[in-house]
């Protein structure tokens, strides 16, 4: 199980990394062609946003799996230990329900998005690219998050200490 969840997480992060790289390159092309060649591109901004939205929505589920989302825990830490153990599954469930609802209604939004075109990308690929291709990132990201959150409830992964993590990460950096 652990190996599968790691594989999923690493795959998602790899794709997200590639997408954010494309985003960056696209923006650099935008600067160069506008500023140095006086030939503004109409597709670069849209491509950058497209890749970024997908990149974020693929990284969000991994952050849920690894409990990297920002939590305010001073009140929970003040609770007795027994109560603390109940709180985690409860908040996990709240996360799953919230993302499930948003994901479900995002699917219903696809129809409205399908009738709109992303004009820049349409020009780049010379065929109509509907806005729904971008909106799709929301239900996909929400669904993946729900799955990974439920997995985490079943196979508990200890919550990392964000402060300790920030420190360790700085340690390896310098």
């Amino acid at each position: 199980m652990k190996r599968i969840s790691n594989l999923v997480a690493n795959t998602l992060l790899f794709v997200a990394g590639v997408l954010i790289t494309i985003s960056t390159v696209s923006l650099l092309i935008q600067v160069v062609s506008r500023y140095f060649f006086n030939a503004p591109t109409v597709w670069s901004e849209e491509l950058a946003i497209f890749c970024f939205v997908w990149s974020t929505m693929l990284a969000v589920p991994v952050a849920f799996l690894r409990r990297e989302h920002i939590v305010i825990d001073f009140a929970v830490n003040a609770l007795p230990k027994g109560l603390q153990r109940l709180v985690n599954p409860l908040t996990d469930l709240i996360c799953a329900v919230t993302l499930g609802v948003i994901g479900f209604f995002a699917v219903r939004l696809l129809e409205a998005a399908d009738r709109q075109s992303l004009s820049g990308l349409t020009m780049l690929f010379k065929s109509t690219i509907p806005l729904s291709s971008l909106y799709l990132a929301i239900p996909v990201g929400c669904a993946l998050s729900v799955v990974l959150i439920l997995y985490r409830i079943v196979a508990p992964i200890p919550a990392p200490d964000p402060v300790a993590e920030a420190i360790t990460s700085a340690e390896t950096e310098v």
Partner: peptide, 16 residues
């Protein structure tokens, strides 16, 4: 950032 605007002002010899 719309194609028609860019085309128009390019046709007029400006740098949109």
């Amino acid at each position: 950032n719309q194609e028609t605007y860019i085309q128009t002002w390019q046709a007029l010899g400006t740098a949109p």
